[in-house]
């Protein structure tokens, strides 16, 4: 049976406009690392999905994928290839057999220089192009240049901007400055959506991650994102717990829903499922769709394809049976 997959909206209808900086709230953040780690450790053991349910969850993971290439040797050639894969993440026969005709990833994510190439490759589709920005990955460039970079990417056709925050502002407790910085990024984005990368691996403590997440949301982030993929520690489930709980807290108190994007180090089907389980458990079903959930990754797609192929055939496939991104 073949049914076309309805691609949901890429972004929520009502954007988070941000709120005034509430320092009392920021300082109230309490994170108990050991307790968070205990919860994270059982996230994938308390819940599991099998058989057709697992297949459905994996197809959903594909829909939420920000298919990414962020390498010094990126060229128009490999970016075009990535875009082709983004539009056809599954081999046609699998698409048919799974009843997932028309499935595509959530977005393509590239450096600014490759934005025009990606926009061109995806023209005629509404698949968004995301650009990493603001001196990605370290963010150690002057603010005006950061703002200029955002505007340039938006002009080039990027509809999502993945910015990096200045980690020094977190490490020195300069919450006002961080708020102002992200506010400025948001304004520079205009209609493009703002994903703020807190670079959790650089923030030293989970409490810093929680406080930084909150400040970014107050400043108007559409998404908060764990990592650049370039820190020594990338997306971990404990960090994910802290950030999703911050999102929940923010939604409960303000009514605005902010999305979440774990990124970096997500390579296996099992990891993708764990992240989905975390979203369902901590934030609920609404946060399982690409308007509020993205997974920043690339190689995970091949592993998901292998798993889906096993589901369809009962046999383990070789990587070279799947079109490479």
């Amino acid at each position: 049976m073949v049914t076309a997959v309805r691609q949901p909206a890429a972004m929520p209808e009502i954007r988070n406009p941000g709120i005034a900086l509430d320092l009392d709230w920021v300082r109230e953040v309490r994170i108990n690392r050991s307790a968070v780690e205990r919860r994270a450790a059982t996230m994938g053991t308390r819940r599991t999905v099998k058989k057709q349910w697992q297949a459905a969850w994996l197809l959903n993971a594909i829909r939420c994928l920000d298919l990414t290439t962020l390498a010094g040797d990126d060229t128009p050639g490999n970016v075009r290839r990535l875009c082709a894969k983004a539009l056809h993440p599954l081999r046609q026969d699998m698409e048919d057999d799974l009843g997932a005709v028309g499935i595509r990833v959530g977005a393509v994510c590239v450096y600014h220089n490759l934005v025009p190439v990606a926009v061109d490759a995806l023209s005629g589709t509404d698949l968004p192009v995301a650009a990493v920005s603001t001196g990605f990955p370290a963010g150690q460039i002057p603010l005006p240049i950061k703002l200029d970079e955002i505007r340039t990417s938006v002009r080039a056709g990027a509809s999502e901007i993945d910015i990096v925050i200045s980690r020094s502002l977190v490490l020195t407790g300069s919450w006002r400055a961080l708020y102002d910085e992200v506010r400025a990024f948001r304004e520079a984005c205009g209609d493009a959506h703002l994903k703020t990368i807190v670079a959790s691996g650089d923030l030293a403590t989970l409490r810093n991650v929680g406080m930084a997440s909150l400040v970014c949301m107050m400043a108007g982030a559409d998404f908060i994102k764990t990592s650049t993929g370039k820190e020594s520690v990338n997306a971990t489930l404990p960090v994910g717990l802290v950030m999703t709980r911050a999102i929940r807290d923010y939604a409960e108190r303000t009514g605005f829903r902010v999305g979440f994007k774990p990124a970096g180090g997500i390579r296996t089907t099992k990891q993708a499922l764990e992240w989905e389980i975390l979203m369902k458990e901590e934030l609920g079903d609404d946060w399982l769709h690409p308007d509020l959930f993205r997974i920043g990754a690339s190689s995970v797609l091949t592993d998901i394809e292998r798993q889906l192929s096993y589901f369809l055939t009962g046999r383990y496939a070789a990587d070279h049976h799947f079109p490479m991104p």
Binding site: M1, T3, V5, R47, T48, V49, K50, K51, Q52, W53, Q54, A55, A56, W57, L59, N60, R63, D97, L98, G99, A100, E276, K280, D285, L288, H289, F311, L312
Partner: peptide
Amino acid sequence: MTVTEIPSQLEYGPAP
């Protein structure tokens, strides 16, 4: 065996 549609709510399903 097919996944006819990705449901809008992802259920866990049995995992015996």
